[in-house]
């Protein structure tokens, strides 16, 4: 590889910025635009000759700002292989805060050029990852997923950790969950829970995740009008938990309903601490003085007289109803 010592000045229009080695495209931030406008270009971009013009190797955001400003670009010429161009781009952008999506985009570029062990041992550390760490393992495992998942990861809608439950699914199951990541942006916890619960519900019932999703009313949530993305994710996650723990979910729902009715109009809260392993309930109230204390005492009398206690205590005493 050679990088020329000389710095040349070329019109921005003469530089083509579409090389695959520019794997982290992005809008320039305001501070870069401000600095280039006020102070001028301190660092030359890297270009390689391409016919009559040039192809950009590193410096895409500077080039974009200078193009907007209508200014020529300071550049150094390089002659490099694809691998070297990727490494040049990586090292000149190493200071940027990296997301999992950006790391995956870089690995996707290098994937054709290096072995997995080279990716792990040489490229991962350049992106702040430990070769022994879980993230590089998950990133490499992502290559086994259908390409259709890549945009969701690279845009940050789908967290890297979701790759673990996804990789345990069959191809058909992966395709079945794909629509849930087409537009919704998931947090790590929600995505992992959602996928894991769907997968485990399927395995426990000797069904496929696709069948669980189709029968469980998941897809209509995606097109439900008036539902915010956050509410859609909450609804999907709740549905997945209900699919994973159907009997527990039914008991919890009924216990919460009865508890609310029993405690209605009082400051008490009712919970079942033993996950239905015993009939025990816990009643809690917070009091901060003699007045609230005597009110709580009266409330307690009222609660104790509720006719719903029998139903609450007997909720888990009957054998489970067969699943609908």
């Amino acid at each position: 590889m050679t990088v020329s010592d000389a710095v040349i000045l070329i019109p921005a229009q003469a530089i083509e910025a579409s090389s695959p080695c520019l794997f982290w495209p992005g809008e320039p931030d305001e501070s870069l635009a401000f600095s280039l406008a006020r102070l001028g270009q301190m660092e030359p971009v890297l270009v390689e000759r391409q016919g009559e013009g040039f192809s950009l190797v590193a410096g895409a955001r500077r080039l974009a700002v200078l193009t907007d400003l209508g200014r020529p670009v300071l550049a150094r010429e390089v002659e490099a292989t694809d691998l070297e161009k990727g490494l040049l781009y990586l090292s000149t952008n190493a200071a940027r805060p990296l997301t999992d999506g950006m790391r995956f985009a870089a690995l996707r570029y290098f994937h054709m050029l290096l072995t997995e062990s080279e990716l792990t041992n040489f490229v991962a550390p350049l992106m702040g990852l430990s070769p022994q760490g879980r993230d590089i393992r998950l990133l490499l495992a992502w290559f086994n997923l259908p390409d259709a998942f890549d945009p969701a990861l690279m845009s940050g809608r789908l967290p890297l950790a979701a790759g673990e439950p996804l990789s345990r699914m069959t191809r058909e199951e992966q395709e079945a969950v794909l629509p849930f990541f087409a537009t919704l942006a998931w947090s790590r916890g929600s995505a992992v829970n959602f996928l894991t619960w769907i997968l485990e519900a399927a395995r426990a019932r000797e069904m496929s995740a696709s069948e669980i999703l189709a029968q469980g009313g998941f897809y209509p949530i995606l097109s439900e009008e008036g539902l915010s993305p956050k509410d859609a994710i909450t609804a999907l996650t709740a549905l997945a938990r209900a699919a994973r723990y159907p009997a527990l979910f039914r008991l919890e729902t009924e216990a919460v309903r009865l508890g609310r009715e029993i405690c209605a109009g009082t400051a008490f809260r009712l919970t079942r601490p033993d996950q239905f392993e015993t009939p025990a309930v816990e009643l809690t109230v917070r009091v901060a003085g003699p007045g609230p204390l005597s009110r709580a005492t009266a409330d307690f009398q009222k609660i104790a007289a509720s006719p719903l206690w029998d139903r609450l205590f007997n909720l888990a005493e009957a054998p489970a109803e067969p699943e609908a």
């Binding site: 485990e200 519900a201 395995r203 426990a204 994973r244 723990y245 159907p246 009997a247 527990l248 008991l251 033993d274 996950q275 239905f276 392993e277 015993t278 888990a316 005493e317 009957a318 054998p319 489970a320």
Partner: peptide, 18 residues
């Protein structure tokens, strides 16, 4: 992947009604 919940001895047990 059945419906296991923590029992009172810390072990996971199938939900009692089941």
């Amino acid at each position: 992947h059945g419906e296991f919940v923590p029992g009172l001895d810390g072990k996971m047990r199938l939900l009692r009604p089941l």
